[in-house]
Design a protein around this nucleic acid. Structure first.
Lengths: 193, 193
DNA sequence: TGACCATGTAAGCAACTGCTTACATGAGGA
DNA sequence: TCCTCATGTAAGCAGTTGCTTACATGGTCA
């Protein structure tokens, strides 16, 4: 929001400012509701520079996604990931909703954004979550966990639906952790009901 | 897609055609990516009629939502609802993705659509699901179930992410039903870990 | 110092959007 | 039969969008 007074001509600082502004706005409004004019204005920069440095709105979105989620996935150990994902989602509103996951949640509807999301999720999150299970279908179980996280983020942070939106994060965490632990460690259910 | 040849002047038939076309398009593309021109064209009708009969794009969306999900929620008994929701979501692609739930999934990002969704979900789905639990926080648990359904639909049908997108519906259903049954029937976890 | 070129800017284009308006037409009652 | 008004249409308005272009500016290095 508050833009530091940058040096008058500094490409790197300008790029950073654009990236930061884009990260905030994509989280707040999603991909399609964020305009390049909004991003440039918040960055305190002429919008033509956005195209000079990033080429297009889609490429800007990809840059934001890569930049933000790379940081998270590499710095959090696999066994911490579900808990961390959830706690990030549950506390998103305290940070004005600015978070790569929330940016994702608000951006499915655009097809270009969805393509980027699919790759980003597969490469980073599912792969990491699947490490937690030794089952044959570990990746499917990981996807189910991921889907639940996203659904919760969606209903709580994007929709703001009660009572989930107002519920105690601790309580939600207890319910979800119990279920996901069972799912990831659970026995194979292929043949029983 | 295929528009029946309607009588030349028939307001009711025209309204129905618009509603049907809108239902399909909102499911395929979501609220904001669907244009009133698209809807009118698919219905084989002049777009000015859309405004005559529905007032605005948002009101058209609300009509579609109400029309479709009212049917589903009333015709399915509560104890069947989770299973039915899930099986509908999992088979969505076989019906060209046309389903009120899928329309919802693709439409969060727009704020006007999200407002309608929140009300629709609260009034119909959560209320119904909460009947299944006798716990004090039945509605929270219902929201968590709902969130999972939506997350799964999102990752599978909207994103199309592997392996969840290709997974056997039966298998998914087994995993999810086990977990949701435990969640809804489960003991109160307020004070333990 | 002076000139080059990375950096920044103003203006606008072309396409698209939701929605409105002014007008045509034809079914049904008198 | 003919007139009326519900029903349908063509055209366009005003605003927004992503992106481009032609030009200004000033930091840097010889």
């Amino acid at each position: 929001m508050t833009e530091a007074p940058r040096r008058r001509k500094d490409a790197a600082a300008t790029k950073d400012a654009l990236l930061q502004a884009a990260s905030e706005l994509f989280s707040e409004r999603g991909f399609s509701a964020t305009t390049v004019r909004d991003v440039a204005t918040r960055a305190g920069v002429n919008q033509a520079l956005l195209f000079r440095y990033f080429g297009s709105k889609s490429e800007l979105f990809a840059s934001v996604l890569a930049h933000n989620s790379a940081r998270m996935v590499t710095e959090v150990p696999a066994e911490e990931l579900p808990r961390r994902l959830l706690s990030d989602l549950l506390s998103a509103e305290e940070r004005n909703g600015e978070h790569p996951i929330v940016a994702m949640l608000r951006s499915w509807s655009d097809e270009r954004a969805a393509d980027l999301l699919r790759d980003e999720l597969g490469a980073r999150y599912t792969a990491r979550l699947a490490e937690l299970s030794e089952a044959e279908d570990a990746e499917l179980r990981a996807d189910l966990v991921l889907a639940w996280m996203f659904g919760i983020g969606m209903v709580r942070s994007v929709l703001g639906k009660s009572p989930l939106a107002e519920a105690d994060p601790e309580q939600i965490t207890r319910y979800v952790n119990r279920a996901t632990a069972a799912l990831l460690a659970g026995t194979d259910l292929s043949d029983d009901q």
